[in-house]
Design a protein around this nucleic acid. Structure first.
Lengths: 332, 332
DNA sequence: CTGTTAGCGCATTCAC
DNA sequence: GTGAATGCGCTAACAG
């Protein structure tokens, strides 16, 4: 591997100064067509590729962004990531993908490493940090967009799902279809989404003048196995439940499996509803009633918000809120 | 936002030279404990964070890697990405995630942008480029690991699934369970995996002295909808098929749906088998018989291979080959 | 339209 | 143990 071709090599070969080469590369127009073409030719034959890091040092802008998710293997976040990456790509940015593993220490560590890499901005999904710690960890970053989380800061925007309204729709629908004893698998205790969805559930019940015991709500790990064990725990104690609202679709799939093991038929014996409408939700048996969150679109929106902040044009952009839609399928 | 704290600020504040600060940061031992502690304190109170790009410029190593996948929303690749990112994180690297969208032009573009970012190495999954173009696009990168693809080069290793043996296992199993008219939804024509799986299918049939028309093999887009339309196309012409091997599980799920629409019951009328064993495969109805590929483990292996190459220690590492395992479920 | 000077923030020689 | 000089590859600000 011979030494890398630098701008100096190009300049020498084309018999111009560094500056002129730099101008050609940066699309500046103040270069005569002749020289420009000559330089472009030299760049081509030499196979010159400008160094992003050198440029980054000089300009204080790296053209890189960070995307922090709890787990990229979770279809929810891989959908968001796809949307976000797509927009970043079309705008010429590269994206660091980081898995926080729902671990606050790792989250802080990641935020620091992204700072060392001098990202121009970042999107942080489902942070598990306390407000103060989050503000602290983010303080070194000029621009950030939070996903499903809000924080008081000028430079930080949010892209949100209105979880509460979604949960209200879901609960109201179950009530309207005659269900009265509705339990909830509420997700991780520290989850903002979980809290909001729980609020919605309670609000809808209250609006229907229905009071249910808090025993019907239990937390769970947001995964298929988490849903399965939580559902069997809950149902073994409260066998009279006729519906279950789940933190998300993965949990709901687990609940379906638990019902199968308990020989409860869905939706006859018990209705199961999820949240998010991830790709598998329409493919399981029975297909899941759920609340649809436009994953990819939200990823795109978050990235647009971030890039607008960075470019400073539309820095007056407000937070983006998405309203989930009820998707009725056979599980209810 | 005040100006960033630099090493010079730390040096001045601690009343030492730049060099000493640099030594402390890089763990060099030739610094007295007193000075070291004083510097660490200053770093802490000033909130100094070394600039990765400046360091990258000076050392020619960025501590960043590239991961190129066709589509991160595909559970196959998000599994791989999770494994790869996990290893990279523990070794102190950051990973650029890029979606090639199965588009060769975009793939080349991505490889160039990763070169400009001066990544230390990259993992490239399921490249759709011709061998020559691939070698060309990779030539600027010191280290690369290919996923499910081999190429003749000293600096390029591969992590492979033995697709052929997997397809043989699958086909042999179907034959042993009495299926005789086995069709195949073979995936994208340009897919290396597709070719190998097709080879395995043919080899197993040949070994059983069974000759089937090539009409029973058709290409398809590697998605649920692709599988659905391909399956209904194939079955509308060849209604006598008693089994279908699918390029991957997504395609198989599509095939299941096509069968449902055609009112064919699985597995009574026709057996459906997939490939990869992605998370949803055990959750659909009926659960899919498939060939299990350890996604996350493969991602980890690919990343280890890459990091070993980069560090130069085990540069004699061979390619890693994973043998898929037959997973029999109710769809066959 | 083009070139010169200066620095971005850090690590790598060498000296002391 | 510590420091001074030099350069990594590029762009910004000014001259011409």
């Amino acid at each position: 591997m011979s030494k890398r071709v630098t701008m100096a090599d190009v300049a020498r070969e084309a018999d111009v100064s560094l500056m002129t080469v730099s101008r050609v590369i940066n699309q500046a127009d103040s270069v005569s067509d002749g020289t420009r073409q000559r330089i472009l030719d030299v760049i081509d034959t030499l196979g010159y590729r400008p160094s992003g890091i050198a440029r980054g040092l000089a300009t204080q802008r790296t053209g890189t962004l960070g995307l922090v998710v709890p787990d990229i293997a979770n279809p929810f976040f891989s959908g968001v990531a796809r949307g976000a990456e797509q927009i970043a790509y079309t705008e010429g940015y590269n994206v660091f993908l980081c898995n926080s593993e729902e671990d606050t220490a790792r989250e802080v560590d990641i935020l620091q490493s992204l700072e060392e890499k001098r990202v121009d901005g970042l999107i942080l999904c489902s942070s598990r940090l306390e407000d103060d710690d989050l503000a602290q960890a983010l303080s070194a970053h000029a621009f950030a967009v939070l996903f499903n989380r809000r924080i008081d800061s000028d430079s930080i925007r949010s892209t949100m799902v209105d979880d509460e309204s979604g949960a209200i729709k879901l609960t109201r629908y179950l009530l309207s279809s005659g269900r009265r004893r509705i339990g909830m698998l509420a997700g991780p205790p520290a989850s903002h989404s979980g809290h909001q969805r729980l609020r919605g559930y309670r609000a809808a019940l209250a609006a229907a003048d229905l009071t249910l015991s808090d025993d019907l709500v239990i937390p769970c790990t947001p995964s298929v196995t988490g849903g399965m064990s939580a559902a069997s725990d809950l149902l073994s104690v409260h066998s009279q439940l006729d519906a279950l609202i789940c933190y998300n679709d993965l949990v709901a799939v687990g609940a379906l499996q638990a019902c199968a093991e308990l020989e409860l038929s869905v939706p006859e014996d018990i209705a199961i509803a999820g949240f998010d409408d991830i790709p598998i939700s329409g493919l399981v048996t029975p297909p899941l009633t759920t609340c649809s969150v436009p994953l990819q679109t939200m990823g795109e929106a978050a990235m647009r918000l971030l890039l607008n902040q960075i470019s400073g044009c539309n820095s007056t952009d407000l937070d983006t809120v998405f309203y989930p839609e009820l998707v009725v399928r056979a599980s209810t």
